[in-house]
């Protein structure tokens, strides 16, 4: 059964994230850091009420996954909100972790997900949309459009595409006003 939550309530919840969830992931068995994979698997078992579910998420070896894993940790906190309890089988969350979250994690400083209003909203909406939950007071179209508007991946892509041309244009415009440029050089005849 779907529970109701307003988007601001969920944003508030995310921004309350305890700092432990932002700690560095452990690099190996004996490291002091957070054992991210264990945390993820635990939370998935917890929200699905199936404590016996086998380890769902595993990771192929990749050099540095700090940003990805720290966002996973934040997500674990976010998913602890009651709206996600029994919001579907545990396995449904796996593609989210290894897909969209992985992608955005490298584009935003991890802390921003819990400090910046808009990033917290984006995270909330990503999770809600993945669980097919529509925030209270919105309809499917509004919810989709809203997520679209603050989508980091899309925003970064747009910025990267337009940036070089924009920068060059602005540099020319600035230079056009620079005193050195406006002094120009000798004119030898009338035009």
């Amino acid at each position: 059964m779907q529970k109701a939550v307003t988007i601001s309530e969920l944003i508030h919840h995310i921004k309350q994230c305890p700092s432990e969830f932002l700690d560095m992931p452990a690099r190996g068995e004996n490291d002091d850091g957070v054992h991210t994979l264990a945390l993820v698997n635990d939370i998935l078992r917890y929200i699905c009420h199936c404590p016996t579910t086998p380890c769902l998420l595993t990771v192929e070896g990749k050099a540095d996954k700090t940003a990805e894993w720290r966002l996973w940790q934040v997500c674990c906190w976010a998913l602890s909100h009651p709206v996600f309890f029994e919001a579907g089988p545990a396995a449904q969350w796996i593609p989210l972790f290894s897909g969209r979250l992985d992608e955005v994690s490298t584009l935003v400083e991890t802390e921003k997900w819990v400090t910046d209003e808009e990033r917290a909203e984006e995270l909330a909406r990503i999770l809600l949309s993945h669980a097919a939950i529509i925030p209270e007071g919105e309809d499917a179209t509004i919810a989709a459009d809203r997520l679209d508007a603050i989508d980091t991946v899309k925003r970064m892509k747009v910025i990267e595409q337009t940036r070089q041309a924009e920068l060059r244009t602005q540099e020319i415009r600035r230079q056009m006003a620079a005193r050195a440029a406006r002094e120009a050089a000798n004119a030898y005849g009338r035009e």
Binding site: R168, T169, E171, I172, R173, Q175, M176, A178, A180, A181, R182, E183, A184, A185, A187, E191
Partner: peptide, 22 residues
């Protein structure tokens, strides 16, 4: 849009601006 006509290889520090008052 004069900036649209500036070649990519043009060095901006060489830029001169002539105001025509035709």
């Amino acid at each position: 849009r004069p900036w649209q006509y500036v070649a990519a290889e043009a060095r901006l520090e060489d830029m001169l601006v002539f105001c025509t008052s035709g």
